[in-house]
């Protein structure tokens, strides 16, 4: 007998859990509303509001993740199911949507539904609304104190060492990694003995192709750059719609740091070498993902 679908063998079909009916959904929404109005929810010392993240922020991002960018996640098994780890990724896309998508990927595609604690620049927390939402989404300031505190608390910490140099780079430099800061993230991992997981994100470069930079305007507004894309600011608010590029997110094999010992953080040569190793790994996997992706929008 030739089986048509050999991998189906022995597997009984399990009906998927039915979606909650509309009245259950409305009741859940009312429950959420009651919690919000009476303040009966928990926030941590970094300002992380899990209730808001799970019921508003992640559901808002999910259609963008699955429908608009059709994100494919690879190698989630490289991300530990428990315990702290530092996830180091490339940064791009004019607006840091890549950080948000990686958060959705780790929560929805990882079997342990891990929370991703992002480290952001101080400008993010200086901005009204954006800053407070970022904290509620689990982000905190990119400084060694916060990174080490989160890692010691067994959290999954996300860092983008390129910073604004990565997000605000012109379109012609797409998929080339910028300088990796001063290696502060390696120091944090060494001090806490947590593994570094390199992560490559492909697709974010094309959402807002930055063809120009209005530097004078940026300086006036106090921003690191002011993007000019084919649609922004020419088409006004319509230019804010990101292009629907195809995204791939890949997590590489973890680089263990525990065997170096916490004193190794004081060895600049080791820190430089590890920084370079992480950077090379990410650049290589970006090239591999680009080869896998047949076209930008498919």
């Amino acid at each position: 007998m030739i089986r048509l679908r050999p991998d189906d063998d022995g597997q009984r079909h399990v009906p998927p859990a039915s979606d909650p009916s509309w009245d259950e959904q409305v009741a859940g929404g009312l429950d959420f509303l009651r919690r919000r109005l009476t303040g009966e929810y928990e926030t941590d010392e970094f300002g992380f509001d899990t209730d808001l993240t799970d019921h508003v922020l992640l559901p808002v991002l999910r259609p963008l993740f699955s429908r608009w960018f059709r994100v494919e996640t690879h190698g989630v098994e490289n991300v530990p199911a428990e315990g702290g780890a530092l996830i180091v990724a490339n940064h791009s896309g004019t607006v840091p949507v890549d950080a948000l998508m990686a958060t959705v990927a780790l929560h929805d595609d990882h079997p342990a539904q891990r929370r991703f604690r992002l480290l952001g620049a101080d400008l993010v927390f200086d901005l009204p609304v954006v800053g407070s939402l970022a904290r509620k989404f689990g982000a905190t300031l990119a400084c060694s104190e916060d990174a080490e505190r989160l890692l010691c608390g067994d959290e999954l910490v996300g860092v983008f060492p390129e910073g604004f140099k990565g997000v605000g780079k012109p379109f012609r430099e797409r998929y080339t990694l910028q300088r990796f800061g001063r290696g502060g993230f390696v120091t944090a991992a060494l001090r806490t003995g947590k593994p570094i997981v390199p992560c490559a994100i492909v697709g974010a470069e094309e959402i807002y192709p930055m063809i120009g930079n209005a530097k004078t305007l940026a300086r006036l507004l106090g921003l690191p750059y002011f993007p000019v894309t084919p649609t922004f600011p020419a088409l006004g608010p319509l230019g804010l719609v990101p292009l629907p590029s195809k995204w791939l997110i890949a997590f590489g094999e973890p680089i263990e740091t525990a065997h170096y010992g916490p004193a190794a953080a004081e060895d600049p040569m080791l820190v430089f070498n590890l920084t370079d190793q992480v950077r090379e790994t990410i650049q290589q996997s970006i090239y591999q993902l680009l080869l896998q992706r047949t076209s930008v929008f498919s």
Binding site: S21, W22, D23, E24, V26, A27, L30, D31, L33, R34, L37, T38
Partner: peptide, 26 residues
């Protein structure tokens, strides 16, 4: 100023209403 009991009461009543509407619809 806004008693929490009031919020709980209002949302509970709305939930009952929704549940009734849901059972009627089903």
């Amino acid at each position: 100023v806004i008693p929490p009991e009031l919020v709980v009461d209002v949302t509970a009543r709305a939930q009952q209403l929704v549940a009734r509407a849901g059972s009627v619809a089903s």
